[in-house]
Design a protein around this nucleic acid. Structure first.
Length: 539
DNA sequence: CTAGGGTTAG
């Protein structure tokens, strides 16, 4: 009789939830361990609804959940973001006295964090009688998932302070924080700690490090981490691929993909997003089509993001009709990002008619995201449909969305220096403007002519006209020219796209100053050296 | 005695 109990567990361990369930249903006497096996198996195999259904059934049978079952139920609630359900399970744990268990407590923390209830997560965390690396790691990770980066870093520091044995889990979380906020110096320090504790060979840490260095503009650092870790899982390969795509190392990206095939590492949907992204940045239409077709060979169904990538690639390359064909051939409903990609192509190649068509389709979707309104308004205005343009702008206002302010920042030591266009708040603002004035004269002698079309389109008043000549990235670069040693590349981060005039200007800045200038805008890197940019003016 | 909690890549 007991053999079936072993069988349930065997199928659970071998990740065969349906087989586990089948034996479970056939078994007369259902022990709490069997319930536990089958519920955890559902939770671990992306079947949270089944896990919760079985949890409910179990309660109906009068079986009391124990310290092994609660964590699986919590996990399932978290996966579904079922806040109220998770809360009720938590209450049950409190009532039955299991809340003091470190496994149960950790899973409750994670559940609340996944449901966006970070305060509740913290309350539970603070009240836990016993905490271990998992509880700390879960709490730190919870903060990072909700974008509460500062609190995540603070907690990480506290964990170190308390002499806790911080493991690769927490390391990868905080390194991700550094990557997202482009805190290179802090990230390097944490990398140093990883080396000391030998967690640097973890592939989770490795992927985060590759991503950190890439996002901070240090592609060489990303390559180095990648080369030094022999055990590369899919996350590592994907992190390296996206780094190559962001830095326009297109050939290297294709090479990595070949290497993956040669070591039998099976690509997933993210891998294909990475290579399509690389093709898009390089304007390589035929290669993009090749990889898109290759998805079928690997049995991966293209998602809306893959279609958006293809439309982006074709649209940017001016093949708008091909882009439309792709959309028409989609087996799934085109999403906003797909139409958005088409709109971008239309804007570049000035196809007002198609832009309006795409804009109408976006409107039909009902839900319009904040970044899209500007694209829509511009598309309608260009076609003379001013009423619709006004409608798009009104939607934006009604939702209280403000246009994002363009900011650029450079990191120096432990400080981040941030600049807005025409900003004079920086302590050495005087020197910065002086530097730009001098450099500007030199640039003009070298042949730089300001392209005023970027000014006229956006603003009317003279005041703003003045400001636009001092776009935030130019201020940040000037700051770097003044303060950084000559051999150090100037790395500037920007939250919006670099305008065409600044792109040209920075090329001249690199030539006249003899510096390497690396600018990351909202979607890729530009490496300026000796008057040329790595993007080949295609961005 | 067979069962449990966290992560990387877009």
């Amino acid at each position: 009789m007991l053999i079936s109990h072993y069988l349930i567990n065997f199928y659970s361990k071998t990740q065969l939830p349906l087989d586990s369930q089948r034996v479970f249903e056939e078994t007369q006497v259902k022990s709490s361990t069997s319930w536990s096996s089958v519920i955890s198996c559902f939770a671990q195999n992306e079947l949270p609804c089944f896990a919760i259904e079985f949890f409910r059934r179990m309660l109906g049978f009068g079986v009391r959940p124990d310290d092994h079952i609660f964590p699986s139920a919590m996990k399932a609630s978290g996966m579904l973001s079922w806040r109220e359900f998770g809360r009720s399970v938590h209450c049950l744990a409190l009532k039955t006295g299991f809340d003091g268990d470190v496994f149960v407590g950790s899973s409750v923390v994670d559940m609340y964090a996944k449901c966006g209830e970070i305060r509740d997560a913290r309350t539970v965390f603070d009240r836990m009688p016993v905490r271990n690396v998992v509880s700390w790691g879960g709490m730190i990770c919870g903060y990072t998932q909700l974008g509460e980066d500062e609190e995540a870093l603070r907690l990480f520091k506290q964990a170190l302070w308390e002499g806790l044995d911080v493991n690769d889990f927490a390391f990868s979380s905080v390194i991700r924080v550094c990557g997202n906020s482009t805190l290179l110096e802090l990230g390097k320090q944490i990398h140093g700690l990883c080396l000391k504790t030998s967690y640097d060979s973890s592939s989770f840490v490795g992927s985060s490090l590759v991503s950190l260095y890439s996002k901070c503009g240090v592609i060489e650092g990303a390559y180095q981490v990648f080369e030094e870790i022999p055990e590369r899982n899919l996350g590592m390969w994907n992190a390296m691929l996206i780094a190559c795509a962001q830095h326009a190392h297109i050939e290297k990206a294709f090479d990595l993909f070949k290497q993956m095939e040669s070591v039998c590492m099976k690509p997933n949907f993210i891998t294909f997003l990475c290579v399509l992204y690389a093709c898009s940045h390089g304007g390589l239409v035929e290669e993009g089509k090749h990889y898109f077709e290759l998805m079928k060979v690997y049995g991966i169904e293209p998602g809306d993001q893959h279609y958006a990538s293809m439309v982006d690639l074709l649209g940017r390359a001016g093949r708008l009709q091909d882009a439309v064909s792709i959309i028409n051939g989609m087996p799934i409903k085109p999403t906003e990002s797909v139409w958005g990609a088409l709109l971008t192509g239309c804007r570049i190649h000035k196809d007002t008619e198609l832009a309006v068509y795409a804009a109408d389709r976006v409107f039909e979707l009902g839900q319009v995201s904040s970044g899209m309104h500007v694209l829509l308004a511009n598309a309608y205005a260009a076609a003379g449909r001013y009423e619709d343009a006004a409608k798009a702008r009104k939607m934006l206002r009604d939702r209280g969305v403000k246009k994002e302010t363009g900011l650029s920042w450079v990191e120096q030591g432990n400080c981040v220096h941030t600049f807005a266009a025409g900003d004079r708040r920086h302590p050495i603002s005087g020197e910065i403007y002086q530097k730009l004035k001098e450099l500007g004269e030199e640039m003009e002698r070298a042949g730089y002519v300001a392209d005023t079309s970027f000014v006229l389109r956006e603003v009317g008043s003279d005041e703003k006209n003045q400001a636009i000549r001092y776009h935030s990235e130019r201020l940040a670069i000037a700051f770097g020219l003044i303060t950084f040693p000559p051999e150090r590349p100037i790395r500037v981060m920007k939250n919006l796209r670099v305008c065409g005039d600044c792109h040209t200007a920075i090329k001249f800045m690199s030539k006249c100053s003899g510096r390497v200038i690396i600018v990351r805008d909202n979607n890729r890197f530009h490496r300026f050296e000796d008057g040329k940019c790595s993007c080949g003016d295609y961005w």
